[in-house]
Structure formats: structure tokens, C-alpha cells
């Protein structure tokens, strides 16, 4: 299914913002909010996972239903998960298409990656020195 990919702030994302290395932030940003009808069309129950494929790559997210979101659009909190699919093109404005790229959605059983895995996938090295 094709959908418009919209990203933005949420309270949970905002709270997690200050301590992003923690699981709360992963939970807050690895969700894909969508209209219940779209969810049904994908034959998914809320909480099941969806593979989102966009201009710059793909990412697995957990679905959350939300009636405020129009059909044909998905809303993903701003963060590393959303950015796995957003391209770098800014059309000479400095601003990527955080609210206007088109993605492809399909159900998946794959797990949602941890933030660490996402960062290592782009060449980073996880820091674990502060783990309790």
C-alpha cells in the first residue's frame, strides 16, 4: 500500500528526547500511526508490525491506530526510525521532505530494530559504558 509519510513531534517523543539511549525513546519513535481503515486494508491488528519502504531505505515499525489521521497517510514521530526512509534532497531549502515523501507499506513479522542497531547500520559504534 502506498501512503504519504508524515513525521512530527509527540509528547512521548519529546519526553524521550532528553535521554534517547533509553528504551522509552525507542518505543516512542518506532511507531507508525495510521487510520484504522488503512490498518484493516493491510490486514493488520494494532501492535503488529509494518515494513515501511521509502526513498532512502526501509524500516520496521509497530502500528498504532489513530482516527485523526486521514486515510492514505501515516504519521511517524520524528526520530531515527522515521529518518531511515527520508531522503536528503532539500530542493535547495536546507530542509528535507520530512512531511512529504511517499512510502510503500507491507505487513512484516520482522522485529523492530533497536536504536543501536540503526546507528550501527550507518557505520556507528554503540556506546555501552553507561549501562547499569
Amino acid at each position: 500500500m502506498k501512503a504519504l509519510f508524515n513525521t512530527g513531534r509527540t509528547v512521548a517523543q519529546g519526553q524521550g528526547l532528553e535521554v534517547k539511549a533509553r528504551p522509552e525513546y525507542m518505543e516512542a519513535t518506532s511507531i507508525c500511526m495510521m487510520n484504522p481503515v488503512d490498518l484493516m486494508d493491510l490486514d493488520l491488528e494494532e501492535g503488529e508490525r509494518v515494513l515501511v519502504r521509502g526513498p532512502a531505505g526501509e524500516v520496521v515499525l509497530t502500528t498504532v491506530q489513530n482516527e485523526g489521521i486521514p486515510r492514505g497517510t501515516v504519521y511517524v514521530p520524528m526520530g531515527p526510525y522515521a529518518n531511515a526512509v527520508v531522503d536528503t534532497e532539500t530542493h535547495a531549502t536546507g530542509m528535507p521532505d520530512f512531511k512529504s515523501c511517499i512510502v510503500d507499506l507491507e505487513p512484516t513479522d520482522d522485529e523492530v530494530k533497536s536504536q543501536t542497531e540503526l546507528m550501527e547500520a550507518v557505520g556507528g559504534l554503540a556506546y555501552r559504558g553507561d549501562e547499569e
Binding site: 534517547k20 532512502a56 526520530g79 529518518n83 527520508v86 531522503d87 546507528m119 557505520g123 556507528g124
Partner: peptide, 24 residues
């Protein structure tokens, strides 16, 4: 790391970088 498209992060990870920030 949280707010830039993935391709930017690939470049950031490939060059010498220093982060000044209180948190991980």
C-alpha cells in the same frame, strides 16, 4: 543522529567528529 536522514548519518559516521552534549 535522531533528526537527520540516514544518508547524512552515514557521512557523519565516516568523518572525524566530536559531540558536546551532556547525555548519551
Amino acid at each position: 543522529g535522531a533528526h537527520f536522514p540516514k544518508k547524512c548519518l552515514e557521512h557523519l559516521a565516516s568523518i572525524p567528529t566530536v559531540l558536546i552534549d551532556p547525555m548519551h
